[in-house]
Design a protein around this nucleic acid. Sequence first.
RNA 1: GGAAGCGUGCCAGAGUGGUUGAAUGGGCCGCACUCGAAAUGCGGUAUGCCCCAAAAGGGCAUCGGAGGUUCGAAUCCUCCCGCUUCCGCCA
Length: 419
Amino acid sequence: MIDINFIRQNPEKVKEGIAKKNTDPKLVEKFLRLDEAWRSKTAALDQLKAEQNILNKELSKARSEDLVSKAQIIKRRVTEIVAERNKQEEKRDEILNQLPNPPFEDVPVGKSEADNKVLREVGEKPKFKFQVKDYLTIGESLNLINVKKAAEVTSSRFGYLLGDAAILEFALVQLAMETAVKEGFLPVVPPVMIRPEVFTGMGRLASSQKDERYFLSKDNLYLVGSAEHTLGPLHMNEVLEVETLPRRYVGFSTCFRREAGSYGKDTKGILRVHQFDKIEMFSFANPKDSEKEHEFMLGIQEKLMKALELPYRVVAISTGDMGWTDARQYDIETWLPGQNNYRETHSCSNTTDFQSRGINAKYRDKNSDKKYVHMLNGTAFAIGRIIIAILENYQNEDGTVRVPKALQDYLGKKVIGKN
RNA sequence: GGAAGCGUGCCAGAGUGGUUGAAUGGGCCGCACUCGAAAUGCGGUAUGCCCCAAAAGGGCAUCGGAGGUUCGAAUCCUCCCGCUUCCGCCA
């Protein structure tokens, strides 16, 4: 969530910031009105409580019926005002929950993904002397992917990874983990379920994101949409020593997404599914270094893409297309010959103190003041989509698929589909 | 799933209705002593919020969480969460 004091002191900045993110700036006015009402209720309550405390102290010395009846009257008033104040607070916080993290000043302003800015294209797009196939055609013919059976067994937007595709998954896990560990990330297998309060703190139940989550009502738990969601709370309610920053983690988890509102979009295959596995990097950084840390994480993502020798481009996400919690976001889009297009495979975000405030993750600086850390997250590999990219970019005319050099040792072969 | 116990500040640990934000010890920080250190002594050592232009100052809240009883709750009651132990089940 945004710092309440920041909104009070810089309402115009906040309005401008959230407007860029396609959020109604009038919400700020609404927030300030409700906040003002909350403050006056709080002041009234505090004053009444002070009176009550004085009376109670006198009563603790000597009981008198007169004082008791006075205190009883105050008690009734307190009960009333507490109820009013709480109601006011609820209303105010509901609006606060509708305010996304304002973007940094230099983020490209735009309404949608059409306004994203391509920063660079890297790698050579493969040239084919034959009719290229899409990954699903290749995957089905080599019995690597089965979505039809998954639909029968589970439902649409699920898939089986079979044979070398399954092996490929673990190879990608190994490659990503080894690379991240070398850069100082601690490997983690985090929980994939999360409490509603913690999820809210991470800013992941705000607004329409809620529709994106699977909820287990019997246990009052949500399924995570990314390892990010349970990696962040690893330092919930903690104060980290400044010299231990940045703290870096790389997590493997299954990701669950309802894909609400994407009906009709990418309905075929496994590009957009309800369940996939992902390796995710996460960093807790000193605020003064978080932009640098962001670039560092992006650098690792590119390193991984270069290791796989897949053509990609780096995109600065425009304000209108950014994530709810993000002050800056980069995506990596990988070239998919079967679609003749770049498609998102990675995302990397600096959420500044938006999430750390929600989960109360602080650090102690040199003056031993406690401040909120900055939290960053970035994809190492969204495994399903990388498998798609490999199948399409490394396809041969005879229907087989070459294995990227970096993965050959893990698979123990150079070509998939050859007898 | 059944039964029992427990949950206090950075840590250990007292406190079972009345000036308790909370004894005591440890840790940490500052000062004194010392050439320096240790030891010792003295002082300090939470967070959030509100009022105040700010500072100074004042007030409110917080003893796992949410409610309740009461003039008054760390202390009593209810529910929830967590931890421990035993039984059952289980990869």
